[in-house]
Computed example of a mutant assay.
Amino acid sequence: MRIKANDEQQFLEQVFVKRGFSTVNSQLLAETLVDADLRGISSHGIQRLAWYLRMVDDGTIQPQNSVKTLKESPTSLFLDANQNMGQIACFQAMTSLIQKAQKSSIAMAVIKNSNHFGTAGYWARMAVKKGLIGIATTNTRPLVVPTNATEAFLGSNAFAFTFPADPHPFVFDGATSVVSSGKIQVLAKNKQPIPGQWAVDADRQVVKNADEAEDLLATAAFTPHQKGGGVLTLGGNQEQNSNYKGFGNSLVVELLTGILAQGSISADTSVGKHDFSQFLMVIDPGFFGDLKQLQHDASAMFQRIRHLKHLPHTEIKIPGDREYRRYAENQQNGVVVDEQTAKELHQIGDQLNISVPHAVSNS
């Protein structure tokens, strides 16, 4: 079904407030989920709500805790999310980094003791809205099997990068694995098979059944070394297809997050203290030349790529094209909510005495 984005925002705000988050933080959390749904990134949208609330229930997320500043310089920031949601610390960090980069051309932040932070692209887009380059990364629970391994060790370790351009900014936002676990969750909820080589079992054999893959990921994330298997790195199952490059990309994120934060690497977030880490950076491209000219040059390059010769009945998309198109469409038609998530929303609404958004008619 589809629901109006405004209705989703209001519902989520009410839920988060009733679960102990401040009004301001509830608005932010709701906005990040709605934004993901509007962009067609349903894996990080409202379908995450039940998972978030379970982590509040078990104490993984502490809604009442405030973010702490551990260290700060004119170009750097080190924050302790204090076991609250990653979105809350990231908003504080990016707001500060934008101001720092506008003065010093570059600024970066590391966040420790954090949780899930929504889509990486949300934070990188905060910078590009100000004509700046934004970078955002995070580690996660252990879900990804390194090259030739048969058990999960790495996180899906999202990476986002933005650059000013027209008709919309360049926005690359993706996992350093073949997919994020959220996409497999969505398929499992809807009883749909996995379309590509996304996950493998303990024998490193490709898994097509989304329920089986979801079970493997749950085991990898919460009881590692018990069963084996997980999501593949970029490059797929075979070393001949250069999956060691995806492995390397994921390790870079581990170094910038868990290691720099002196927190847990992805492999250890499920066996001891649960603490994700994030790394954010903002760069002022105007330091290197006229911003309008740089934006024009980037836009011209993207247009040349879009108009390259290509296969019939296909189009060449620049990162961000699909999401901005979906954003406009879903603002008008409503965001898509799968059947299982709709059931979860009704259960949450009943428990908290909050009205669930009504479905809008199909367009």
Rank of each mutant, 00 (worst) to 15 (best):
S250W: 01
Q293L: 12
D284F: 01
G289A: 07
E254F: 01
G248R: 03
H307K: 13
I305F: 08
G236A: 05
R306D: 08
N249K: 14
L234T: 00
F288D: 07
L255W: 04
P285C: 04
L251A: 07
L255C: 11
G286D: 04
Q293I: 06
H296G: 11
Q240Y: 13
I316N: 12
L311M: 13
S277C: 09
R306C: 08
L234N: 04
V271S: 15
S264M: 12
F247H: 10
K317N: 14
H296R: 13
H310V: 02
N237K: 14
P312I: 00
G236W: 01
S264H: 08
G246E: 01
G246V: 00
H296N: 14
T257I: 00
N243G: 06
G236Q: 03
S299G: 07
K245H: 07
E315Y: 09
S299K: 02
A298S: 11
Q240H: 14
G263N: 05
L260Q: 05
L255Y: 09
A298P: 05
L294I: 08
V271L: 10
D275I: 00
N243H: 05
F247R: 03
S277P: 06
L234M: 11
L280C: 06
A298V: 09
S242P: 07
D268G: 09
P312Y: 05
R304S: 13
A300F: 10
I283M: 13
I305S: 09
V252C: 13
S299P: 05
A267S: 14
V271R: 15
L234I: 06
H307C: 10
I305Q: 09
V253H: 04
Q303H: 13
L291P: 06
L280M: 09
I265P: 12
H313S: 15
Q262Y: 09
M281V: 01
A267W: 01
M301A: 14
F287S: 13
Q303M: 12
G289F: 02
R306M: 09
D284L: 02
D275E: 15
F279D: 01
K245Q: 07
G235T: 00
